[in-house]
């Protein structure tokens, strides 16, 4: 009996030792050198693996940072400047400072402003609907409302509003990774400069049709009248293809364009209410 136990112990120990030796040599043979800084950089990153930097996850971004040895083209939108200076510190490089950005949906064609002219009855994704036809309304540029942007958001920062039928961005959660920008087949989502107190002014429209046609499809469409362009003192507004665009890097949030827009296509968000103009904007909305 005892001899069996002894033999067992000896055999198993021998197998164990042999395996350990084999493993050791194999590990030596196939060892791959990896820059230890990659691990350090990865640790400094947010670890969201959102792909907002243009790389396949944080590890790939860390590898790129170490390999490039230059951070001028690399930026993690989720971590922002703070994170990038951390990365720069590890690698002894200079990080580029970028203004924080936030996603903005450039369509305000709610169910009320933009009447439905057809009913889509296919698989409910924007990608399929947009490849089939122009959309449920007469505006071929507007939001389809099936929420592809919501599905791709890793940060729970964009949601469909069931009343308006449009997606809404939660500014505090948005990290400007750009996933929704990619996902939107109508290219309605733009990453704009983040202003203090979450304030924003933007043209909530991408309709490039001529004024009359655009207005017919949607009450709050930009008709390209260029009143805002004339009003802007900072050259922030440009008109192209019957559509105004406000450059958020030039905009000073003076709000003058908002009040001159005849169709209320320019939207101001999170501003204190203005005493007189507020009323007029509201009354025009009601009259429509």
């Amino acid at each position: 009996m005892s001899i069996t136990i002894v033999y067992t112990v000896i055999t198993l120990s021998a197998i164990g030792t042999l395996s350990a030796v084999v493993l050791y040599f194999v590990a030596q043979k196939f060892k791959v050198y990896e820059d230890p800084r990659i691990d350090q950089v990865e640790a400094a990153l947010p670890g969201a693996n959102c792909g907002g930097c243009g790389h396949a996850g944080c590890r790939a971004f860390a590898e790129a940072c170490v390999k490039e040895n230059d951070l001028s083209n690399l930026f993690c939108p989720v971590g922002g400047n703070e994170c990038m200076s951390g990365v720069a510190g590890i690698l002894g490089l200079e990080a580029v400072k970028k203004d924080p950005r936030v996603a903005v949906v450039r369509c305000n064609g709610t169910c009320e402003y933009r009447p439905k002219t057809s009913n889509f009855d296919g698989a409910t994704t924007c990608a399929i609907a947009s490849s089939l036809y122009s959309g449920e309304t007469d505006c071929q540029y507007g939001c389809l409302g099936f929420g592809d942007c919501v599905v791709v958001c890793d940060f729970d920062a964009i949601h469909m509003n069931p009343v308006t039928g449009l997606p809404e961005v939660i500014d505090e959660k948005c990290v400007a990774c750009g996933a929704c920008v990619e996902a939107c087949p109508k290219m309605l989502i733009e990453l704009r400069k983040k202003f203090p107190k979450e304030r924003k002014i933007y043209v909530a429209c991408r309709n490039e049709d001529k004024g009359g046609q655009a207005r017919k499809a949607c009450q709050v469409a930009c008709i390209g009248c260029s009143k805002c362009e004339k009003e802007c003192a900072y050259d922030a507004i440009t008109i192209a293809n019957n559509l105004a665009f406000i450059d958020s890097d030039k905009c000073k949030l003076c709000r003058k364009c908002v009040s001159v827009c005849p169709t209320n296509a320019i939207i101001e968000v999170n501003f204190p209410p203005r005493k007189i103009q507020k009323e007029t904007t509201e009354s025009t909305t009601v009259n429509q």
Binding site: G122, T125, I128, S131
Partner: peptide, 12 residues
């Protein structure tokens, strides 16, 4: 099921 809807998307 909208099989072809998705297959068409995949084809694209």
């Amino acid at each position: 099921r909208p099989l072809l809807d998705y297959i068409r998307l995949g084809k694209g």
